[in-house]
Amino acid sequence: MNLPVEPNATQTKLPLEFTDNHESLKILGFWSFLATDLLLFASLFAVYAVYQSRIGMAGPSPDQLFKLGPAVVETLLLLTSSFTCGLAVYEMRHGHKTGTIAWLIVTILLGIGFVTTEIREFVSYIALGDSWHHSAFLSAFFTLVGTHGAHVSFGILWAITLIIQLAGRGLTTITTRKMYMFALYWHFLDIIWVFIFTVVYLNGKI
């Protein structure tokens, strides 16, 4: 179903997702959601910043625990997926349905690569006995990074449903708005990861 386009809105060369007033408001609403999600991550960052030096009676320090290799691989995968997601929106703006879906599939594959690398990293820590219940630092670490990983996993499921809708309905006012929202969500997660990489991994190696 396509919403009616306001008569004069087409003359201003608005992108499809902004042509309808209500769909534009939904995009504004999604920015509000991102602001609240930012507060969720801010709380977890605050907990991590406070507890990163509190390793209790046992457990490794950040420097002993982290290996930069997996973290760098995860960063490169997520940065590239952010780029391909940007290209998907670029293709969408030019009315290319196939291009949008193709870049979305690349984004999903890179996202799966990210989640897989992160799970392997977690498993390697837990295999050494450094589980989340071992120290305050490990609890804060697994909660912060795990919450981000859960967001990315949800984003992958969202992108899959988006591809089904795009393939079935084409580029309409509604599907482009959903695609635009997904892009906002995905780039937002990339920003959060940049701060995790900086505050958790790089800071642990200083």
Partner: peptide, 11 residues
């Protein structure tokens, strides 16, 4: 980098 993501990719 956050500013770059916001300005370029998040429009």
């Amino acid at each position: 980098q956050a500013a770059l993501q916001l300005g370029i990719f998040m429009h």
